[in-house]
Design a protein around this nucleic acid. Structure first.
Lengths: 173, 173
DNA sequence: TACATTTGTAAGTGATTACTCACTACAGTT
DNA sequence: AACTGTAGTGAGTAATCACTTACAAATGTA
């Protein structure tokens, strides 16, 4: 990966996340990155290839985040770490996550395979904790994590930690 | 509102919701609606004006939905109705909601004013129910409603009602 | 009937789009 | 030194973009 390739990826992530994929032109990406427009196509084939390269990086980052969490043996601790996850997204990763979340609504970009292992771990945890319906409980947690991430990425409520406390209380954590 | 105006609004809603606002051309809207492209600009001024007309309709629909709910005097019943709301979105309104949710991520389109009265009603309900932190509890509910709506609009989980039950249990409903 | 207003169209406009092409610069290999 | 492959550029391309304009048809209104 040359320096200019990284510059392209970085600029594209920023622009796609803030202004949207469709409304960001390849010429603007090139200008922002300080490279010729042709270079984008040399390295990434087409505009979608550029997006895919970014999304591959993002998926790998997400995979790593959940990978260590789902190894937690104690079910209560696993649940706690999971619920805390959206609240612990670092500001430096906001652009990446904004892009991921925005693209969910692009018809062809929705992908559930990433969260499959997380689902399995959660069902298992709820089973161990004796919940009546581990599957439903898992879906509920995933829904909440999605809503929490959305809220935090879009308008960063004050009193984050109080909200998290109220949530933890629901699971007696 | 002439028939052709309604045809334009209907086609635009469908296209904006399924393919995205930025990637839908005015010419495609016109073609789908079976009118000349110029008519769009005659009635709505420009592409953004067309979007605004759609969003005005959507906001009014949303306003009506919450309006009747927040009048509920009994706090437990209010909470129940609110939590059930995302699960009761009719399929015929999916396009509208998909557009609303997708546009949240468009930098300039995020608007909290609509949910302000809902917030007030919820805080009040949690106070009456003796919750320790009604504000945090309210934010939590709003986050969940957002996550639930997202999940339901994007991939319609089976066992919706079991998920809703698991949720209601958290609030002893 | 005469006139004014609104609704509608067809054919444009310049600007921008994603992408291509011919080319140069350079590093590594034999 | 000769050759190969990759990195990078700048000037194109046709197509599409949002939008305009000139004009016709329909509708109301006196």
């Amino acid at each position: 990966m040359t320096e200019k390739q990284e510059r392209i990826l970085h600029s594209a992530l920023r622009l796609f996340a803030t202004e949207g994929y469709a409304s960001t032109s390849t010429s603007k990406v090139a200008k922002t990155a300080g490279v010729s427009e042709g270079l984008i196509f040399r390295h990434f084939g087409n505009k979608e290839g550029l997006l895919n390269a970014i999304m591959d990086q993002s998926k790998e980052a997400a995979r790593q985040m959940v990978a260590e969490i789902i190894l937690t043996p104690e079910p209560k601790e696993l649940l706690r770490k999971l619920l805390e996850m959206p609240f612990n997204i670092g500001k430096e990763h906001y652009e990446m996550w904004r892009l991921v979340y925005a693209l969910k609504w692009q018809t062809d970009q929705y992908d559930t395979s990433t969260q499959e292992p997380l689902k399995v771990a959660l069902i298992n945890a709820f089973q161990k904790l004796g919940y009546a319906d581990p599957d439903a409980e898992t879906e509920l947690v995933l829904m909440f994590m999605d809503g929490a991430a959305t809220a935090l990425l879009l308008h960063e409520p004050d009193r984050k930690m109080e909200i998290l406390s109220a949530l933890k209380e629901k699971y007696k954590l």
